[in-house]
Simulated assay, not measured.
Amino acid sequence: MIHAGSISNTDRVEPHLLRTFVTVAALGSFSAAARQLGYTQSAVSQHIAALEGDLGVALLHRRPVEPTAAGQRLLDHAGPILRRMEAARADIRRAAGEPPGKVVLGGCPLALAGRAARALAEARRSLPGLEVSVRTAARDAVVGGVALGEIDLGLVDGIVAPSDPLRLHDADFLATAPVAEEPVALALPGEHPLATRSSVRLRDLADANWLDAPGIAAPLGELRAAAGTDDLRSALRYEGGDTRTLLSLVAEGHGLLLLPASALAGVQGVRAVPVSAPRLVHRTELVHGRTLGAAVSALAAALTR
């Protein structure tokens, strides 16, 4: 167990105090926070007292343990501050070098399909000792994992205007590179009234029911922005990451989707109709730290070749 020493009035807000405060607020308990952080309960109390003393306000109600109004405001700031510090540590570790031959490749489900699988095989042939772990996650989780050093290379995707970069959060200290762009298509059941159309405009689909699947497809909010309308409404939200399950929901008529055309080729019960307006593409980008070791660099080169 870690015992806190004396804390003077000259101390200022430090990361370990913020981390203690966030943990206590999340768990609603000083003793539970102490167990999770490996401190004594007395140390946790001293950390909170030091933080409150520095800011000059009460941050936590004691019974029950929950944030005050000021504490809630601090929580809004504390998360981004702690994530930025972890990202800085990860960036420094990358600059200092990496264990050879070990790479964690993270990506969105559609970004990992096809090209990524082929590039991974190419990289493993050129580096026979390469050990790779593949992790699937939604876009923000992939970018966050790269920023924190939990993922070496990330493949993320989205729907944008041709040649426009993806809008990525928490990527300030990361590098990005384009991997691929391809046409998008509307996925709808084979018996849908629009299934025989040669093309569709998003604006004409304001009254349609849509599937919202942020872990796989572009979030519905992005489609609203692309279509220039707030009328696209969600009929069903899918929280998973399995593309086949998502397409089976389309085939059964639960809602429409906008996906890369290649993801819809040969899917039973689903018809792909090109989108004529606005002009949109499915874009895949590689995300990584600014310093790359040999193994990560080889895989990155294969993915962007």
Rank of each mutant, 00 (worst) to 15 (best):
D76M: 10
P99F: 06
G56M: 11
D54W: 02
D76L: 12
G107I: 13
G71I: 04
D91Y: 00
K102N: 07
A96V: 02
A116Q: 10
V103E: 10
I81T: 12
G79D: 06
G97N: 08
D54L: 00
H77E: 10
E66F: 00
A87I: 01
I92E: 15
L60H: 01
R89W: 12
P109H: 09
A121V: 05
M85H: 10
A96I: 05
R118E: 06
E98K: 03
T68L: 07
A69C: 04
G106T: 12
A69Y: 06
V65G: 06
E98A: 14
M85G: 00
E66G: 01
A95N: 09
A111D: 08
G107H: 06
E122R: 13
P100F: 15
P99I: 02
L120Y: 02
G53D: 13
P100Y: 05
A90V: 03
P99E: 12
V103C: 12
M85P: 11
D76G: 01
C108Y: 09
G106A: 12
R89T: 04
R115E: 11
Q72G: 11
G114I: 03
P67M: 08
A70P: 02
H77A: 13
G106F: 07
V104P: 06
R83C: 10
A95S: 12
R84W: 05
D76H: 04
A88N: 00
L120S: 00
L55W: 05
R93E: 15
P64S: 07
G53P: 10
P109Y: 11
L120K: 13
E66D: 07
E98M: 13
T68Q: 02
I92V: 13
H61M: 08
G53S: 12
V65D: 14
A88T: 01
K102H: 06
E98D: 14
A69M: 11
R115H: 15
K102P: 00
P109L: 12
Q72S: 06
A87F: 10
G71K: 04
A58L: 10
V104S: 01
H77D: 00
A96F: 12
E98H: 07
G97L: 05
A78N: 14
V103R: 04
G79N: 09
V103F: 12
Q72V: 02
